[in-house]
Design a binder for these strands. Sequence first.
DNA 1: CATTGTGTTGAG
DNA 2: TCAACACAATGG
Length: 393
Amino acid sequence: MRLLCHKTLNNIIFFSNLSLTPQISLKKMDRSSADESTTSDSISAAVPAKTMTKWPESGLCRMGSGGSVIIDAENGVEAESTRKLPSSRFKGVVPQPNGRWGAQIYEKHQRVWLGTFNEEEEAARAYDVAAQRFRGREAVTNFKPLVLSSEEGRNDDVQIAFLNNHSKLEIVDMLRKHTYGEEFGQFKAAFGQFGTRSLKDDNTLDKSNNSSTREPLFEKAVTPSDVGKLNRLVIPKQHAEKHLPMQNAGAAPKGILLNFEDKTGKVWRFRYSYWNSSQSYVLTKGWSRFVKEKSLKAGDVVCFQRSAGPEKQLFIDCKTAAAAAAGSCFVQAQHRSPAAQVVRLFGVNIWKAAGDVNGNAGEISSCGGVKRLREMDLLAVDGGKKQRVIDAL
DNA sequence: CATTGTGTTGAG
DNA sequence: TCAACACAATGG
């Protein structure tokens, strides 16, 4: 029964009282301010100021709350030199003491931090992405209400697909690391290969067919340096060039990001690049975390597979040296990943299972008496730090 | 030491 | 749900 949001934010005030039914697919008609959209891709892309006409200087100033509201007086130009931070004109964007901008979104009474950014507008776009992922297409965003016209419309679907195929945690992680643009770009490129038909109704990728056809690519017994401090795995050249072609080495001097799924359904992201210095192909960023979590020791074997379908989804697994000597690749003992399968924590899927590509995986929820488990603690990707919660499982 | 981003409050 | 504020935790 509550009619929500009267946001005086953008000019999107309209529907302040659409009844409760969420599915009342209201068409927002404020397309006017929306045209910006075009490249829904990278967050980092600068935005033509045209979009945010209206109200920056419109004297109208919204002060959330909490703070000591001491405006009124003399505009406040100097007095605030040290004190008050300039509030952002963007939703979900909050100033940082050092002049940078933070982005945050709320869900289930909890704040989800989306990272800090140099540009206010960058933060705003981060919020937009999160809003899309958390609240769906109709989410109120700073820039694009998404859903643009005709030919770009397809691009939009891709964006939705990308979001739906990553857990909230993953998306948040990308935002915090500022890799969203890059990863989405890659996805978009890959997407072109198999087109819209691989999209299911809900815009998630249809992986139904390739799950059965997993084709082994190659294995490597890791060397001491592969599991050492170098934080990289050397991919034997022959295998690299045969199975993991660097699409356009020229356009990607810094390598590309590859996603691998392990037996538990957990997704690992590694940077794959070519090192001229050593004339070798390597997995770098993200690798050390894999080594750590899998407790990889020199001599252990990592196996790479991929689905046969057009999607070419990649998989990675490992086995101990002993297991390798014993036989086939797929006998990896679960002793290394105690929390096999989906990690279901407090009734919530933290990691999507191999079969569950659905967007609802990785829900950040705070059901029950569970007091805020800090979301990012559950994130495995190379954030480095916090990991305890997942380890504890 | 600089910064992040969490704790927390109060308005909407 | 949201942003303002304060500051502990964090990590280089």
